[in-house]
Write a protein that binds this DNA or RNA. Structure first.
Length: 526
RNA sequence: GGCGGUAUCGUCUAGGGGUUAGGAUACGUGGUUCUCAGCCACGGGACCGGGGUUCGAAUCCCCGUACCGCUACCA
């Protein structure tokens, strides 16, 4: 049997990290077995703008490199892949279930159902519908309709024995049929519910392996009931542990951002990203700027392969030490047998560790490509940078080295692209390094060194500064920090000599002059 | 409440009747360096609890406990 897996997102407008993990495992399993991965859109309960709400989800998957063989925008032999467009199929399936006596029309009003449920709760029993308004014959139905009632369709669940199946992750599981509710599969307005739609679609799409989140484990019997009742061959089921909140055990939720932010590790990652957006002068949209969503990582400039690699290890491992996987290695090694049974909590700090390794391993040219869009957003680079500009970017990227952890970190080095008279000074650093006693004077005496040093390159600059330090009888720290602040405006940064070389002689002198003027003015900064 | 699921360092995990319980990440200390980042070295840190089986239990069994899910005309 050919392997076909699926992921069925609801068009919510964003791509949740936990959902991606589930999709990834489906994708990996399909690729591992040379099968197909299908994207199906679960939009049974939403009439709003599906296309717009789907956009971020599809974009997110494309960014991550999780491609689908069938589904929205690519089509496929089982189209349409939108549940909202498949109601005819569901209607037929409901009719079949009705005809086989596996479902019934129920004419209870919402109030009557609620009353039964509440009674059960009071008596601390599991609520099982009494079937009091069940219409098994057309005569019954006509009578109820005569009373002005409308019908939903409910599953007529067995009242004995157990539903057993072998879960590919959890092993054998069993549920008593008698404890299963007569679930509604068709609403009074004729629309259909998830379990019906899901069972029908899984069959129609030829899904061989249903790999989904753990929360569906308890739902499986009712889907098996539907599928078996319709005479479908059952898929294999694999229930993945859910992705838990950082440092916690509850399910990771987009809505609990505030709570997660009270956790230092999580906050650190969030704030790092927020800082990048702030530097870009872009507003942080709380709705999507959330490390629980994939959009966050794309926005800030994470490597998609780092995100995927991290997610792979959230609930799956190959052995006791392998952590870094290429796309091909993931596909080669992935197996459901090695999926964990317990929930894994999401740790953005660990994700960052993967990101750092990926980014550091990137050749400079690739980093330049990653970083350039951010310089464009800053207005520093045009869409078609010239060679000089590209070289400058490459030089900064190379000098920054592993300080650029995500592509957006380039915003911390804008001073290399700004006008000598315009780049900002960090006031505190300025006061400390140039405002200190004698600092400005030393800087003034150092200036001629930069005028004459030749070539104006890191190594010779280093040597020149060493000679200056010896001649002055000072420690290197007594001059180097002042120079750094003068030419970059900052107290921290990468190697000073690289910085000087990138800027070039003229810029360095101009910047030192500007700093000295500011120092004379006593303002500390402009 | 009922049913189902899960339980190893803070976190992700490996392992599993006899191990110094391994790795990663995070954290701490020291070193290197012009700051930062990094790198190097070192360090602290775990088998949910109680019974049972056994020469021996973190591992197997039972009972608890905690957490999660389902128990919707949500998905």
């Amino acid at each position: 049997m050919s392997v076909r897996t699926r992921f069925a997102p609801s068009p919510t407008g964003y791509l949740h990290i936990g959902g991606v993990r589930t999709a990834l495992f489906n994708w990996l399993f399909a690729r591992r077995h040379g099968g197909q991965f299908v994207l199906r859109i679960d939009d049974t309960d939403r009439q709003r703008n599906v296309e717009a709400a789907l956009r971020p989800i599809l974009d997110g998957f494309r960014w991550l490199g999780i491609d689908w063989d069938e589904g929205p925008e690519v089509g496929g032999p089982c189209a349409p892949y939108y549940q909202s467009q498949r109601t005819g199929r569901y209607r037929t399936a409901v009719k079949e279930l009705l005809d086989r006596g596996l479902a019934y029309r129920d004419y209870a009003t919402a109030d009557e159902t609620t009353a039964e449920r509440e009674a059960a709760q009071r008596e601390k029993r599991r609520f099982i519908y009494s079937r009091r308004w069940m219409a098994e014959t057309d005569a019954d139905a006509a009578r109820f309709e005569g009373e002005g009632r409308t019908a939903v369709v409910r599953l007529k669940m067995p009242r004995e024995r157990a539903c057993r199946f072998d879960d590919l992750v959890r092993g054998p599981v069993a549920f008593d049929w008698a404890l299963e509710q007569d679930h509604v599969i068709q609403r009074a307005d004729g629309t259909h519910l998830y379990h019906l739609a899901s069972a029908v679609d899984d069959h129609d799409f030829g899904i061989s392996h249903v790999i989904r989140a753990e929360e569906h484990l308890s739902n499986t019997p009712r889907q098996i009931f539907i599928a078996a009742g319709l005479g479908y061959e059952l898929p294999r089921y694999a229930h993945l542990p859910y992705v838990a909140a950082p440092g916690g055990s509850e399910k990771l939720s987009k809505r609990k951002l505030g709570k997660y932010l009270s956790q230092p590790d999580f906050k650190k990652v969030h704030d790092h990203g927020a800082g990048i957006l702030a530097a870009l002068g872009e507003d942080v949209v709380a709705e999507t700027f959330n490390p629980v969503l994939v959009e966050f990582y794309r926005d800030v400039g994470y490597r998609p392969e780092a995100v995927v690699n991290y997610l792979l290890l959230l609930g799956w491992s190959l052995d006791d030490r392998t952590e870094d996987f290429t796309r091909d290695e993931m596909i080669e090694h992935f197996s459901l047998e090695r999926v964990n049974r317990s929930a894994a909590s999401f740790d953005p700090q660990k994700m960052m560790a993967f990101e750092e390794r990926r980014m550091n391993a990137l050749p400079v040219a690739a980093k330049v490509d990653a970083v350039s869009p951010y310089l464009e957003r800053l207005g520093i680079l045009g869409t078609e940078p010239n060679e000089t500009e590209k070289e400058r970017v490459a030089a900064v990227v190379a000098a920054a080295g592993d300080r650029i952890k995500v592509a957006g970190d380039i915003v911390r080095y804008t001073e290399f692209f700004q006008d000598d008279a315009a780049f900002p000074y960090d006031e505190k650093a300025f006061r400390k390094r140039i405002g200190a006693p004698d600092a400005a004077d030393r800087l003034r005496r150092f200036r001629p060194v930069l005028e004459t040093v030749d070539p104006f390159e890191a190594a010779s600059l280093d040597a020149a500064l060493q000679r200056f330090v010896e001649a002055e009888g000072i420690r290197i720290g007594q001059i180097i920090h002042a120079v750094r602040v003068a030419v970059t405006g900052k107290g921290v940064g990468f190697g000073l000599f690289e910085a000087l070389e990138i800027l070039g002689r003229a810029a360095c002198l101009a910047r030192i002059d500007r700093a000295l003027e500011a120092a004379d003015a006593g303002s500390g900064a402009d």
